[in-house]
Nucleic acid binder design. Sequence first.
DNA 1: TAAAACCTTAAAACATTCTTAAGGGAAAGG
DNA 2: CCTTTCCCTTAAGAATGTTTTAAGGTTTTA
Lengths: 230, 230
Amino acid sequence: MAQPTILLVDDEKEIIDLLEIYLKNEGYRLLRAGNGIEALSVLQKEDVDLIVLDIMMPKMDGIEACLKIREQKHMPIIMLSAKSQDMDKILGLSTGADDYVSKPFNPLELVARIKSQLRRYTRLNVQRPNKEHELEIDELTINTATHEVKLDGRDIKLTPREFAILELLARHRGTVWSIEKIYEAVWKEAYFDSDNTVMVHIRKIREKIEENPRKPKFIKTVWGVGYKVE
Amino acid sequence: MAQPTILLVDDEKEIIDLLEIYLKNEGYRLLRAGNGIEALSVLQKEDVDLIVLDIMMPKMDGIEACLKIREQKHMPIIMLSAKSQDMDKILGLSTGADDYVSKPFNPLELVARIKSQLRRYTRLNVQRPNKEHELEIDELTINTATHEVKLDGRDIKLTPREFAILELLARHRGTVWSIEKIYEAVWKEAYFDSDNTVMVHIRKIREKIEENPRKPKFIKTVWGVGYKVE
DNA sequence: TAAAACCTTAAAACATTCTTAAGGGAAAGG
DNA sequence: CCTTTCCCTTAAGAATGTTTTAAGGTTTTA
């Protein structure tokens, strides 16, 4: 993290402007958003290391935004609250914020808190299981980042092709994929009829993840059409 | 952590008494100390989950105590500071405190901060290094400050490249690193296909730290993907 | 019951990873 | 400044793991 990126979310432009002066001076890269909705769309496009979030905002308030962000990604969130709204603060914390600061605040205090949070995150340097990278189907967990598959917590070893097929079906839960489509999506080349290699792979996957491969629970056959994960 | 233990360190008895009412009400177990020296001796005997530390104290002040604690154990430290000592606050943070609260404070605010810190520490169910610069994987200890590696207390000599690879994998325990990613992270230059130098280094590391390099315990191969330390 | 669709198996073909050893180069020591 | 030692890289064959092929079996549908 050479130059950490901080997203400032507040509807009061003056506050953002003020913070920008202090934070730029510390070498941070800054992004801004005027409400929760904007913040979420920025997060989709940009790689953000920490968020400063005002509680009171139009459209989507900070608490709601905080919850939504937590659903997707894990990063330090510092909440800003109007003076003496202690209940709000506590609420804010139980939504998953990592810290909060009361308005009016001393900018230096906020800078210190930001440093503290970023330091913690680099110190612990943990891979936080990123919900974004996890697919869950009942007791089956597929981590697309680490290529790990777990069934009831037990590790399942899948080969790269097997993994790719399972990921494809799990990602598009409910939709049926023909053998041809699967082949093209995974192999990225044209499919020749009379090639049963996808079928063989499906069989191998079932052998590994299904209690009874003849009566599959995860990968179902849709007769005459293809396969799906329900 | 059924009933987390909190150590309150302050020379003002009234403050500790006040906090005790609020924190007991939240179900915490409480320990008290009147200064830094007392605090350290309590820590030797008791299993503490979080410390609240006043900055201004006789004998050994909070900053000094904070540094000493950090040398030994890693746990959340919340500092208390007299009003408007902003510089003190920032100093406190750079000594390794995790958060701070200004006196006079709202007890509910402190309760919220304590919850937040404890939640974080349980949420990231991370291996907490006893010392800041040590990574532990079972009986393997990696000191990133001194570049020392110990296995069951015995010294293991690793070359710089070997150390860098092991550190990388150990720091991101659980995540799988492809050969390409490892190369780029350690060598900081572009990777050329058909270069098996990472592989050879992995082999050398295994030779040194694994009982049976064919059946590695520490550095596992994830076929078709890369390597990881579990 | 025949035809079509799907399943199973095992072995051959293919790909990746491991291992070893040797040579070049950098750093340490005289 | 030369020698020695240690570290890094390269390369090639061995070992291990994966994918494909192909042939025969089973289930479903009409």
